[in-house]
């Protein structure tokens, strides 16, 4: 269900999870657009030579996935804060799940707080954080 008004938001509700495109081609497109075009994000072999498990999804791209999830759920939401902690690397070409749960609703101001996580198929949290968004009444 798409959220258009604050009155439709329920405390504790889980936002629809989505699986982002983590392919090397898409991460490279992102890295070029962001000005972060480094082999550690765009080349598995080069990343492994640096001791990494493979090319990494930039943390800022994970932030973008989280923001996209919020807009998929509430298209008119105005994001005021995305605060993230990168607990463990996310690797390109692996599958991740972008998750959110509503943890607070301020009915006067219209601010909604959402707990955010990026998890892998093993249900391990790789990124977690909080968003604050404004949703109109």
């Amino acid at each position: 269900m798409s959220i258009n008004h604050l009155s439709e938001v329920e405390f504790g509700v889980e936002l629809p999870t989505f699986q982002p495109d983590t392919s090397l081609a898409n991460v490279k497109k992102f890295a070029i657009a962001a000005g972060w075009n480094s082999p550690r994000f765009t080349d598995h072999e080069a990343a492994r030579k640096e001791g990494l498990p493979g090319a990494l999804i930039p943390g800022i791209m994970s932030q973008g996935f989280l923001s996209a999830m919020i807009h998929n759920w509430a298209p008119g939401a105005e994001i005021r804060l995305v605060d993230t902690i990168f607990r463990a690397p996310c690797v390109v070409d692996e599958r991740y799940h972008i998750n959110g749960v509503v943890t607070d609703i301020d009915e006067e101001s219209g601010e909604v707080e959402i707990d955010l996580t990026v998890t892998n198929d093993a249900q391990e949290t790789r990124v977690f954080g909080t968003a604050k968004v404004m949703i109109a009444n």
Partner: peptide, 29 residues
Amino acid sequence: KLADYAKSCGETAQKYIDTSNPDFQAPPT
């Protein structure tokens, strides 16, 4: 580049992915 940034993240809101949108702007993050 802003539109590519947003699209590659899976953003769907037009004001972030459509450069001809009158309210086109950088994605929030």
